[in-house]
């Protein structure tokens, strides 16, 4: 069984690295986006191998969702839309190459050279739960403070970005009987 698992691990590892490289080798925004999605999905599947079912599946869910939305933004923000045509995915080649190789060498070297401690104790029964407690347990107060702030920031950003808020739809005193729907004004379709 462990031979099969090893095989699956190496397959996923190769897929994730290869599709990560593909992100920079392909010539289309859509392909780059979904190559990255494949890379993330492979990493999510590797988490499943660690018996972290919830975190693995959630990673896949969130990454596919994010990449689907990111693809739209990547194409949208390319002025005059060259994103619909074949284009290079790389800018500042030398600089980014130096950075990427440097970071890889530091991280991989660290992982290989560090004197890993021996395992103490046995793994917990419910890995997802214990991981959650390890991450959140002592930081709960921070999380509780940060989350309303983040939420308020999101709402504020949306209010600022929204071209037609409720005052546009219900009038200045919010007394209009029927709102002017999104399709009635400013609708150029």
């Amino acid at each position: 069984m462990s031979v099969v698992l090893d095989g699956v691990f190496w397959l996923l590892a190769v897929v994730s690295v290869a599709s990560g490289i593909a992100v920079f080798r392909v010539d289309s925004m859509a392909r780059a986006t979904y190559a990255l999605a494949v890379s993330f999905v492979a990493v999510g599947a590797m988490l499943l191998l660690l018996n972290l079912e919830y975190i693995g599946v959630i990673t896949i869910l969130m990454m596919v969702m994010e990449m689907a939305i990111m693809g739209i933004f990547m194409i949208m923000f390319m002025g005059m839309n060259p994103a619909l045509m074949p284009m290079s995915m790389v800018h500042n080649k030398v600089g980014s190459l130096v950075l990427a190789v440097g970071v890889f060498v530091v991280l991989a070297g660290g992982a290989l050279l560090i004197d890993w401690p021996d395992r103490r104790g046995a793994p917990a029964g419910d890995l997802t739960r214990s991981l959650g407690e390890a991450i959140m347990g002592s930081k709960m107060l921070v999380m509780l403070t940060v989350s309303p702030l983040l939420f308020a920031t999101l709402v504020a950003a949306l209010v600022l970005a929204n071209p037609r808020g409720r005052y546009d739809r219900f009038g200045d005193d919010l007394r209009a009987g029927t709102p002017s729907g999104p399709a009635r004004e400013g609708d150029d379709s």
């Binding site: 999605a37 959630i58 596919v64 990449m67």
Partner: peptide, 13 residues
């Protein structure tokens, strides 16, 4: 349940 949800997010892509 999360599995089903992840699969229906695949439909987005």
């Amino acid at each position: 349940m999360v599995w089903f949800n992840a699969m229906d997010v695949m439909v987005w892509a």
